[in-house]
Design a protein around this nucleic acid. Sequence first.
RNA 1: GGACGCUUAGCUCAGUUGGGAGAGCAUCGCCCUUACAAGGCGAGGGUCACUGGUUCAAGUCCAGUAGCGUCCACCA
Length: 925
Amino acid sequence: MEKTFEPQSIEQQCYEKWEAAGYFKPTGHGDPYCILLPPPNVTGSLHMGHGFQQTIMDALTRYHRMKGDNTLWQVGTDHAGIATQMVVERRLNAEGKTRHDLGREAFIDKIWEWKEESGGTITRQMRRLGTSTDWDREVFTMDDNLSKAVTEVFVRLHDEGLIYRGKRLVNWDPVLHTAVSDLEVLNEEEAGHMWHMRYPLADGSGELVVATTRPETMLGDTAVAVHPDDERYQAFIGKDIRLPITGRLIPIIADDYVDPEFGTGCVKITPAHDFNDYDMGKRHSLPMINLFTDDAKINNEAPEAYRGLDRFDARKQIVADLDAEGLLVKVVDHKLKVPRGDRTGAVIEPYLTDQWYVAVESLAKPAVEAVESGEIRFIPENWNKTYYQWMNNIQDWCISRQLWWGHRIPAWYDNEGNVFVGRDEAEVRSRYKLEEAVELKQDNDVLDTWFSSALWPFATMGWPEETPELDTFVPSSVLVTGFDIIFFWVARMIMMTKKFTGKIPFKDIYITGLIRDENGDKMSKSKGNVLDPIDLIDGIDLESLVSKRTSGMMQPQLAKKIEKNTRKQFADGINAYGTDALRFTFAAMASTSRDINFDMSRVEGYRNFCNKIWNASRFVLMNTETEDTGRDGGELVLSLADQWIWAQFQKTLKEFESALADYRFDIAAQTVYEFTWNQFCDWYLELTKPVLNSDASTDAEKRGTRHTLINVLEQLLRLLHPLMPFITDTIWQRVAPLSDAGVKEGETSIMIQSFPEVKAERENDKVLADIEWLKRFIIGIRNIRGEMDISPNKPLNAILRNVSEQDQERLDLAAPFIDKLAKLESITTLKAGEQAPASATALVGEMEILIPMAGLIDKDAELARIAKAMGKAEQDVARANGKLSNEKFVNSAPEAVIAKERSKLEEAETALAKLKEQHATISAL
RNA sequence: GGACGCUUAGCUCAGUUGGGAGAGCAUCGCCCUUACAAGGCGAGGGUCACUGGUUCAAGUCCAGUAGCGUCCACCA
């Protein structure tokens, strides 16, 4: 094996082997375990969030596969209607064309081309991450099967009256020319103005002053409203206003909705362009005047002077005209929430159009109950509050989009505008008994992307056909996703899956945190702080990173700053850390917090961890490959250390599995890291050396230690595999043949081996305690060396005092280990009454280790060391004394706590006494 | 306006039912010891945001304050 771990040389070929061998498929036996991959955008590329979530899903998938479950990780991609259409449209614009130049069909062909061209990017990147999804079942949301399910759901919901078409006020994106759902609108606070305008009464008897943030909509006003109890305006209610500019007569109405305290207490009502006004218009049967065209320009309803003006130009013009007529009272600065489209950033316009809706109320109820009953569980649990809050106030879902890319709505219109819904035109004709002569045109609109995503749990399993997969893998086991799509996706999947299968879509919902940069900022192209997981795997030089971060920007003016920051933060580019290190980092950072600041130094640390595993394995192989490991029989005598590492491993295994059951990947990672580095490498491997390198060891002892080395490593690799698939398989190929696991004839892989099982007979508290004692002994001496500047190479003689029977027993077992690890020449025991030479001291419980100082040790340094230890001991004594002398403590605390406190006191007092004695001895020199 | 979250070592974060403050990275000292210098050994470092309460005992439970953040709703 190479001396240093080089991930590049192993990862790709490893993956190809797995995929070719079909290891990612469900085995068909065992308990079903299924994870649905949240389908990434087909034309997207892998970002840190994907890397993070997919690491978690893959770890769970590999773990359950090794546990013997019938494991499916369902993979697929999403057509992502708006996002994809925009990308292709932008490319078209770059050529100086628009989608209208091409026409609908040609444009859609263009998107399919683009999909074929770039659609594999993300799945290729996923393979680099090691994702063990079943690629043979890969699904695209616009595949025929999925589209069939979409149509089926639409038709069935429509037949039940749960999908309807209606003219309503919707959120209109004037750039995209489409309706969007409430969720796709972001409300950001922005600085604006409030215009106070005079509205004269029709009878000339006075005026009202209305305040508005949108003066241009006054052209569509159909009333002015005041609060019914507002004394100022009692006399006005019922009278008419002559609306300036238009000259139309509009009534003054009273409505509770008006807040008398706000503005002037008079509100202009524009039912066609404001959601609240719309409701009020309905209540008061007001006319609705639509003022705008599709791209938010003034239409022909307005006086001629304004027609064709953009809404913001119209605003200026109207304000100027009112001012000229003396109707503008004042303009005040005002902060307001501006609705913007999440894709375009354009100001969203409430707009009166015909759209399709899902009546969600009846679907929401069972979906809420599924969580309330505990059938579906959010992890962390708190997210259920977010879910309830939204579900309990849920509004009908606008599902039609005036886009070209997506599932076309299965509705047809005749020339009279009658609507017919059916699975296809032929079915419509037979259903509604329409003759061939009747001309039918399909609805131009497509469905919201999330409509098809909502069907993911069952549509990917073959629905509406009755398939075995529907029985086996619905519900799936856990959904791993971010909180940002709880409403968009999670809630809707629950509703739709309950509705169409009667089952829940998944049992657990594990909500991950959001990956941010090291400063806690969201990673975004415009901030220039995006990291590509692949760059962390393969590495990237500075120049490439800079050009990657600054190319194709929406706001090119930011490029300079981004370049500067990038050059500063990554002066040497990014090292190649390999997939396993990156995955382990993701796992280690997956705590319960909702924001995860990605810290590059963690990756480096875990790359070092990979190297540690690599080198530990080299050591094990060096000592076993050409030696007898007892695989073919032969007596095995296990040393204290051998028994200990087995016992430690059982503990680690239990902790790991329990952490995984709680979705605490950080704890799981921490646990195996600690075991591997701090126990297996730092102690166990060192403890095997005295056995393996000593002529005093018997063959059976050496065989026992080699057997333990190779088999613990073999099991450790299996334990680590779910988190670090590549390095573990690579090493395992060399290790397994030497171990009891053996390798079956022909090719195999660690990923289809069983997960290690806890063996009760290997748990051993006595041995654990013995080795703890041994560690304290060795650390005591190392501490003396370290603080007294004694070379690690200098052999020392240790003298023991106050040796108990148990100490003596342990010493008999452990002496050879101690000699080697503490580099001792001799250990002698001071007999009763015998005088000790001047020495540096370490305590192991009540036993004292004395290192004679002659010629070695600096008196002052040793006095300082003892003083420090005394300080600690004094503190301990004081604290324990304080507690134990407190009557209330002794009376109320549980017996175990008190006993513990007593023994702590005793221990500290003993230590203090010995230290004092020692201090006196040294001082006297 | 409503809901939720965060504040612990220089940095990034753990801290399970209340019972002696932890990790990684960074820092300091010593070591090229035949698995590993991407390493070994040793060490230093915290008023657990603040105030009060409950309790024998609070980082942990309760109330409040400050700061930061997210989501939902929204007054023209």
